[in-house]
Simulated assay, not measured.
Amino acid sequence: MTYEDRLQAFVGRTITPRTPGQDPVNIPMIRHWVEAMGDPNPIYLADDAAKATGRPGVVAPASMAQAWTMRGYAASMDPAGAGPAQDLTALLAEGGYTSVVATDSDFDFVRELRPGDHVSAEEVVESISPEKTTALGAGRFVTSMRTYRDADSEVVATQRWRILRFRPKQATAPRPRPAINLDNQFWFEAANAHRLVIQRCADCATLRHPPGPCCPHCQSFAWDTVEASGRATLHSFVVAHHPKHPAFDYPLLIAVVDLAEGTRLVTNLVGVDAADVAIGMPLVLDWLDADADLTLPVFRPAQER
């Protein structure tokens, strides 16, 4: 069977069997949602307001349908939960389509959900496109239909969900720009001159990082800087493999380092393999000249210096 045949064999297949959400529709989650979305509609939290519109009581925002059935982080990391959806992801990765971006989502709402409703969802693959050339890279559009049901198996919503699984372009991309503002501009300007500085309170001499307008210890707004020695130890680290961004080399070592002066810094480790990294290892400062406008401090093992 060809690779294309193996992919198309998923069309029409249920990749997520009907699975109930972890919790029924409930007011606390609705409250978090509307606060995050800035939605002031009172029918979501006040019974009187909902009843005034002819509803029996509060209802959940329609767009929360998907939220009630999300598996959560722990379940997504459980190998026992692997199934057809993971099989399809693995097959796409086999073809080099290792990156993903959502392209569109079309909902059809049948009825409003109310507190106490227990929602379940199943997902069926509708189509997998031939390889397409996109701005992100060559990829395939995977379209599926999710059906949401209540405890009585009645359909409450459907969602046609389309994602692009793509092969990242290998061309070099500019490193993402940091968010520079009036409080941290001095730090990036010093870095561009290959100087690692630490903000210091001019009144109590407390060092602080990240930079900020006010000393957290004495609340003074007066400050100056001291230049770091460049010596550090590794406090913690992670090895990033995915999702990949063309501006970075992978595996990407992201670290929190303890500077000799006492503050911590989030940075990258260079000049070392992930297998050789150890918490507490001595580090020294190096510089990454990302481009003409951006230089960042990085650290390498002290013995490599």
Score class of each variant (00 low, 15 high):
Thr2Phe: 05
Glu4Ala: 14
Gln8Trp: 10
Ala9Cys: 10
Phe10Pro: 04
Val11Asn: 09
Gly12His: 11
Thr16Val: 15
Thr16Arg: 15
Thr19Val: 10
Pro20Tyr: 11
Gln22Asp: 13
Gln22His: 11
Val25Arg: 08
Met37Lys: 15
Gly38Leu: 02
Gly38Ser: 09
Pro40Thr: 01
Pro42Arg: 11
Leu45Asp: 01
Ala52His: 06
Ala52Asn: 09
Arg55Ser: 13
Arg55Trp: 12
Arg55Thr: 02
Val59Gln: 06
Ala62Asp: 15
Ser63Glu: 13
Ser63Arg: 12
Met64Thr: 10
Gln66Cys: 07
Arg71Ala: 15
Gly72His: 08
Tyr73Thr: 13
Ala74Val: 13
Ser76Met: 15
Met77His: 10
Gly83Asn: 06
Pro84Glu: 07
Ala85Val: 12
Ala85Pro: 00
Ala90Leu: 04
Ala90Asp: 10
Tyr97Pro: 00
Val101Ser: 00
Asp104Glu: 15
Ser105Glu: 04
Ser105Asp: 07
Asp108Trp: 01
Pro115Ser: 07
Asp117Tyr: 02
Glu123Asp: 13
Glu126Leu: 15
Ser127Leu: 07
Ser127Gly: 10
Ser127Val: 02
Ser127Trp: 05
Ser127Cys: 04
Ile128Asn: 01
Pro130Trp: 04
Thr133Glu: 15
Thr134Gly: 00
Arg140Ile: 01
Thr143Ala: 10
Met145Lys: 11
Thr147Lys: 01
Asp152Arg: 12
Ser153His: 13
Ser153Glu: 14
Glu154Cys: 09
Val155Lys: 03
Ala157Pro: 00
Leu164Gly: 00
Arg165Ile: 05
Arg167Ser: 12
Pro168Ser: 03
Lys169Pro: 00
Ala171Ser: 14
Thr172Cys: 03
Ala173His: 07
Pro174Arg: 08
Ala179Phe: 12
Leu182Glu: 15
Asp183Leu: 12
Asp183Ile: 09
Glu189Asp: 14
Ile198Asp: 02
Gln199Thr: 04
Gln199Met: 06
Arg200Leu: 04
Arg200Phe: 04
Asp203Asn: 12
Asp203Tyr: 02
Leu207Asn: 03
Arg208Phe: 08
His209Pro: 01
Pro211Asn: 05
Gly212Pro: 01
Pro213Gln: 08
Cys215Thr: 02
Asp224Gly: 12
Thr225Ile: 11
Ala232Gly: 07
Thr233Gln: 06
Leu234Pro: 01
Lys244Pro: 00
His245Ala: 11
Ala247Pro: 00
Asp249Ile: 08
Tyr250Asp: 05
Pro251Ala: 10
Ala255Tyr: 05
Val257Met: 01
Thr267His: 01
Val270Gln: 06
Gly271Lys: 05
Asp273Cys: 10
Asp273Ser: 14
Ala274Lys: 12
Ala274Phe: 11
Val277Gln: 08
Gly280Thr: 07
Pro282Leu: 09
Leu283Thr: 03
Trp287Tyr: 02
Trp287Ile: 09
Leu288Trp: 15
Leu288Gly: 03
Asp289Asn: 13
Asp293Met: 10
Leu294Asp: 10
Leu294Met: 12
Phe299Lys: 04
Arg300Ile: 10
Ala302Asn: 06
Ala302Gly: 05
